[in-house]
């Protein structure tokens, strides 16, 4: 019971987008898919949902190929930045169509959500602002009978109140009917405690893949005087550094050396997800630039 992405590679015009990406998406979990712009997040989601074909590799759902397969495609929904709904169609009609094609749809819930978000279902899709297009697509995502729901930039164009409402509704619907959500977003802080498991896509590869507590357990800030910090972190996996006055902070991802004495002047704390992400995806870029 899972979606398995195996050794997926993709290139556009000889430029690598995904390089041998493998991951497993399990049922009834909330995932975060993090990556900087152009890291390949949308491409990966497009491949999983069969919107495009991978150059190499396979995607399966419960061991069944997801390539051109009604059975598997009907069990997933990808809400993406790209608008695939016809502009001139009214939202009510789009909900009818979705009901016909997915076979089942929680219409009362959709109508309640529309009211909560202040979305007029008599409007035409093309007339909506970016924020309300996002809202409409989110509403569909919450109401389709899919087991795996992919939300690519789910808060694009949403104001603070609507974002709050979105997170609340996400938890509400997840609690009532547990199913998998994979959230790809740049607003890491907002989902840091919401996601159970995180994938970080960096430079076309999955660089982090694990449960959030496990990953944060391995992420440290070592701060203190420059000399002491540098001595302590020697040989450790330092992913970034900050300097403020005489204070130096090194960010370490991976095990510390237990036998190494910790000087009194050095403070060790855990990193949060956002800071970890920034440092993990920064270092390589610097290396890239140099």
């Amino acid at each position: 019971m899972s979606i398995q992405v195996k050794a997926v590679s993709q290139a556009f015009h000889h430029q690598t987008i995904l390089d041998n990406v493998s991951l497993t998406i399990e049922p009834e979990k909330i995932y975060g898919l993090l990556g900087r712009n152009g890291a390949g997040k949308s491409t990966l989601l497009n491949i999983i949902s069969n919107r495009i074909f991978a150059d190499h590799g396979t995607v399966t759902l419960d061991e069944q190929s997801m390539r051109d397969n009604d059975q598997t495609l009907g069990r997933i929904y990808l809400m993406s930045e790209v608008n695939l709904y016809p502009d001139r169609t009214k939202l009510n009609k789009l909900l009818d169509t979705t009901t016909q094609l997915y076979g089942d749809f929680d219409r009362p819930y959709a109508e309640r959500l529309a009211k909560e978000f202040g979305l007029d279902l008599n409007a035409r899709f093309g007339k909506l602002s970016t924020g309300y297009r996002t809202i409409f697509k989110l509403i569909v995502a919450f109401c389709v009978p899919a087991d795996y729901i992919f939300l690519d930039e789910p808060v694009l164009g949403l104001d603070a109140n609507h974002r709050e409402l979105f997170y609340n509704e996400l938890i509400e619907t997840y609690s009532e009917k547990p199913r998998t959500f994979v959230i790809s977003t740049h607003l890491i802080e907002e989902i840091a405690n919401l996601i159970e498991h995180v994938f970080v896509l960096d430079h076309h590869q999955i660089t982090v893949n694990g449960s959030v507590p496990d990953i944060l357990e391995r992420a440290y800030t070592i701060s203190g005087s420059d000399h002491d910090v540098t001595t302590y972190t020697q040989g450790l996996n330092v992913i970034g550094a900050d300097h403020l006055g005489g204070i130096t902070a090194h960010y370490v991802y991976g095990p510390l050396q237990d036998d190494r004495p910790i000087p009194d002047t050095v403070k060790i704390e855990h990193l949060d997800l956002q800071k970890l992400f920034i440092n993990l995806t920064n270092t390589k870029e610097e290396a890239h630039v140099n």
Binding site: I30, Y167, N168, I171, E172, Y174, S175, E190, I191, N193, L194, I195, E196, P213
Partner: peptide, 15 residues
């Protein structure tokens, strides 16, 4: 309830 706390602070219900 789990859901109430979860919603209030945007924490995963399992957590």
């Amino acid at each position: 309830s789990t859901t109430e706390i979860s919603k209030e602070f945007h924490i995963n219900p399992a957590t």
